[in-house]
């Protein structure tokens, strides 16, 4: 058991130390990866950067839009599947989840280009948002479905017997019971959307550069401590959202 604990400590260090080091060096006053002293200069530089600001704004708009749409659609979908299974729909949701991102990305690109032959449109925020909705739905369905499994189906039957119509039974009986799951799914969809690089970079236009796209470009160019500062902010921001999401998933049905 003792050697097992040591092994576990090692595994946890492997999982967490790289990000902690990255965050620690965001406070380094030097431009190089040698510690010189504490400084907030890279945070100031990051906040003053106009390109970063615009990209962060784009990411936020895209993630919020994709989250709202995919959460509504995904919740309805999970509810429908809970009532009675629909193997083809469930199968395609599954498939969308296991499809490599690069394949999803190039197929969406090919799809948009094919449509643009007939419509006078261009790649931009709208194409990115649609793509994000498409890959967020499966996540939402899975999280909401897990919550629905804990709900007693007889409660709805009782509501129907007492004169509620189907919509009312959903709205006033089941929805309140699954609400923590729905919020949790929304937070998850937000993080998945906010973080996506592969699909986004393929279907983005000139006006829709997102934060991960800027991060990618800077990372490829070389060491830049400003990137550590942005990374630390994103990791802790998204980390907080995920913790809230987990709490909600664990909360028992009211």
């Amino acid at each position: 058991m003792k050697s097992l604990s040591l092994y576990a400590v090692f595994a946890y260090m492997f999982l967490h130390v790289p990000l902690l080091i990255l965050a620690a060096f965001s406070f380094n006053s030097s431009r190089f990866t040698v510690w010189e002293g504490f400084s907030l200069r890279w945070y100031r530089a990051a906040f003053a950067d106009a390109q970063l600001g615009e990209a962060a704004w784009n990411s936020l708009v895209i993630a919020v839009a994709a989250t709202v749409v995919s959460t509504v659609i995904g919740t309805f979908c999970a509810y429908g599947l809970w009532k009675r299974s629909a193997p083809v729909l469930a199968g395609s949701l599954y498939l969308s989840l296991v499809t490599p991102e690069i394949v999803t990305g190039v197929s969406l690109l090919a799809f948009y280009q094919a449509i643009f032959r007939f419509l006078h449109l261009q790649l931009g925020m709208h194409t990115v948002i649609l793509a994000h909705v498409a890959f967020c739905i499966a996540y939402v369905v899975i999280v909401v479905m897990a919550r629905l499994r804990t709900v007693d189906a007889q409660l709805e039957e009782a509501a129907l017997d007492l004169g509620a119509n189907e919509w009312q039974a959903f709205r006033y009986v089941t929805l309140p019971a699954i609400l923590p799951g729905v919020v949790s799914a929304a937070l998850l969809a937000f993080t998945v959307s906010f973080d996506d690089y592969v699909i986004t970079s393929l279907v983005a236009g000139v006006d829709s550069e997102t934060l991960p796209m800027v991060i990618y470009a800077v990372a490829r160019r070389g060491v830049n401590p400003m990137l550590n500062a942005i990374s630390a902010l994103i990791v802790f921001g998204l980390g907080a959202l995920i913790l809230i999401s987990e709490r909600l998933q664990a909360r028992p049905a009211a």
Binding site: P18, D195, I215, A219, L227
Partner: peptide, 23 residues
């Protein structure tokens, strides 16, 4: 927890450690 925090940044963390001028 680390799985849900940015995939891109987690990969960048290794670039930061491993590159020629890395940590």
């Amino acid at each position: 927890l680390p799985f849900w925090t940015s995939f891109l940044i987690r990969t960048y963390a290794w670039m930061f450690l491993l590159r020629d001028t890395g940590l």
